[in-house]
Design a protein around this nucleic acid. Structure first.
Length: 268
DNA sequence: ATGGTAGGACGCCTA
């Protein structure tokens, strides 16, 4: 069985437990990285994951907002829960697991959305987002103590022209402004990270992983953005066997506004 | 040009 890793901004893990269970039953990834769990650690539905065959549940949650979790069928060790920008937010958890003869470090990120106004001088939430991306430069693909690295999550930025439904109309919309897209790409390349979704599906093909709740008919208008990402160190690129964006999940009962992204590798 | 929906927690912030 190839190694299978999924990432999904779930927008409340407790409210959406039924569709998380459906996803795990139908796709059975080895690891599932969730963002926006909106759940304090002592209320996290750990037992539901155990019952589905996922004994390892690594969580970093807080009340009401944010929160990440990495759920696994194979043993994982939590290596870091990093606090970014001194905000006390739970937006990162790093775990390590074995894949074949390699020790793989897996970063699960939830980058701040950044508010509505794309001006860091008047919008502190946008300032925070830009600062967060800068601080992410510390997280490089090459790390001592690991043979390979994977970085997944809701990065809340659609970097490429083909990552949004209209490049022109979104240039001044937070998630696709040049300061964000250039900052993220610079951080990614500087850190030695490979964009696996775009290696598998290069431009000009469009990729979206998020469709707003505010659209009347998300499917007909198809005004999506690629906000969720799967990156790896260069030494995993040759093992990549596929990327799947599970668009159908946007139409499930009480859906998240994000859909799961699944990456498969030729590794045990 | 504007406002549209959703979740947590219960007035209003965040996405």
């Amino acid at each position: 069985m190839p190694l299978c890793i999924a990432t999904w901004n779930i927008n409340s893990v407790r409210l959406r437990l039924p569709i998380v269970e459906k996803f795990l039953r139908e796709h059975q990834p080895d690891l599932l990285c969730l963002q926006e769990t909106k759940c304090p650690d002592d209320l996290f539905p750990v037992e539901a994951f155990h019952a589905l065959g996922y004994p390892f549940v690594a969580i970093s949650g807080q009340k009401g907002y944010h929160g990440v979790a990495t759920i696994s069928r194979r043993p994982v060790e939590v290596t870091e829960k990093r606090e970014f920008c001194r905000k006390g937010d739970c937006r990162h958890i790093a775990t390590r697991f074995q894949a074949g003869d390699r020790s793989v470090l897996l970063h699960n990120f939830y980058v701040p959305a950044g508010g509505d106004e794309p001006d860091p001088e008047i919008n502190p939430k946008f300032r925070h987002k830009l600062d967060f991306i800068e601080e992410m430069r510390d997280v490089a693909a090459a790390r001592e103590g690991a043979d390979a690295s994977i970085l997944v999550g809701d990065l809340n930025i659609a970097p490429l022209v083909e990552d949004v439904w209209s490049h022109k109309q979104l240039l001044k919309v937070v998630s696709h402004t040049p300061v964000e897209t250039e900052g993220l790409e610079s951080m990614r390349v500087g850190g030695g990270w490979q964009d696996l979704m775009r290696i598998h599906t290069p431009p000009p093909e469009k990729i979206y992983t998020w469709w707003s709740y505010r659209a009347r008919d998300w499917e007909a208008t198809d005004r999506g953005r690629r906000l969720d990402h799967v990156w790896s160190s260069e030494n995993l690129v040759e093992s990549l066997r596929g990327i799947e964006v599970l668009k159908e999940a946007r139409g499930w009962e009480r859906p998240s506004d994000h859909v799961p992204v699944i990456a498969r590798f030729a590794l045990d």
